[in-house]
Computed example of a mutant assay.
Amino acid sequence: MYADCCGRFHAGPAGAPTAEALMRSRYSAFVVRDEAYLLRTWHPRTRPAHVDFDPGMRWTGLEILGTSEGSAFHTTGTVTFRASFHDGTLHERSRFERVDGAWVYVDGEFLD
């Protein structure tokens, strides 16, 4: 399942076709700690120098709660999601943009 869903984006030159697909692939990259993919899919103006992974963090699930724009016909989009980990959840509305035709993560707003 990983290879069919997100692994193909992590491993190759193919990019996620929608903001939601990029969100799912970035979540998977956090699960497998693929720093190179996360940095490659981060907007150049907001990209950190590196990703600090919490060694104790164990992600357990992703639920997409909503999307706005972010299709093949848009240049921007948002994805609202809830990511679960071993002792809590992360609820965020993430913003995405296209850069040179590829979807990238811009930033996110934490929600209650």
Rank of each mutant, 00 (worst) to 15 (best):
G70F: 07
R26Q: 12
E97G: 04
E92R: 00
V51F: 03
G56Q: 13
L38Q: 00
E109R: 13
A72M: 08
D54G: 05
D34P: 09
G70K: 07
M23G: 07
P48R: 07
A72T: 15
Y2E: 10
D4F: 03
Y2W: 12
D112L: 10
G7L: 15
D100C: 09
L65S: 06
E97M: 09
E63D: 14
A11N: 10
L38M: 06
G70T: 02
R93S: 04
A14V: 13
H50T: 14
R45P: 15
E97W: 02
E97Y: 01
T60V: 06
S28H: 11
G12T: 10
T89H: 12
R98P: 03
A49D: 14
S94G: 08
S28M: 11
D87A: 15
P44S: 10
R26F: 10
P44T: 06
T89Q: 15
R98Q: 07
F85S: 02
M23N: 10
P55R: 06
L38S: 01
A36E: 13
R95A: 14
R8T: 03
L65Q: 15
E97R: 07
R93D: 00
H43K: 00
V106I: 03
A36C: 09
L62F: 00
T41M: 15
F81N: 12
V79P: 06
A21F: 10
T18A: 13
S68N: 13
D107I: 10
R47Q: 09
M23A: 11
D54C: 04
E63M: 11
G70P: 00
Y2M: 10
A19G: 08
G56R: 13
C5Q: 14
F53Q: 12
L111T: 05
V99Y: 03
T18N: 04
F53A: 01
P44G: 12
T76L: 07
H91G: 07
A29W: 01
L38Y: 02
P13S: 15
E69C: 05
F96K: 04
L90T: 12
V79N: 07
F85N: 11
V31S: 07
A49E: 11
A21R: 11
R24T: 12
F85M: 06
W103D: 01
L111F: 00
M23W: 09
R93V: 01
